[in-house]
Amino acid sequence: MNDYRLILFLLAALFSVWAVMARRLLTSAIMLALVSVTVSLIFFDYGAPWAGVFELSVCAGLITVLFVGAVSLIRAADEQNPENRSRFHALPLVLAAFAIASWYYLPAFFAELSAWARPGTGGGTIGLALWDMRRPDLLGQILMLAAGVFVIKSVFPRRNEK
């Protein structure tokens, strides 16, 4: 792993901890957007520009707008009845304990796991993969979007004015 990618991974971890520990929900949503931006930079560094563009536009853009909209709606009520913060403050300690404990066995397991990889040809384009070889996925995506619209429709039914 090069230094640039290592720094991006560490930044993603830092922003995700910050998103969890932030007292205000708006800060949490913004930190989540920064996690998305960092993750998209990692995708670009891997040589996966399509994934980076989708991550940047959809996750860092659209989902952040959805979060900020929802947070602005409930912010007043959330500030009146704040959550117990002690468990959030314990996160760095718990994470450090997990990191130290898992350092002894997880990297070795992952090294063994990576040896199982069977290298592919690496050819083709994203258009070929998306529109030709994985075409049935598109049907699943359209159905998933329809399911989302149906959920919104059923959560907010139109009331009859009787």
């Binding site: 399509w50 994934a51 989708f54 991550e55 994203i126 993969a129 998306l130 070889m133 996925d137």
Partner: peptide, 8 residues
């Protein structure tokens, strides 16, 4: 390529 298609 396949990983990106799956990620989308």
């Amino acid at each position: 390529i396949y990983a990106q298609a799956l990620l989308i």
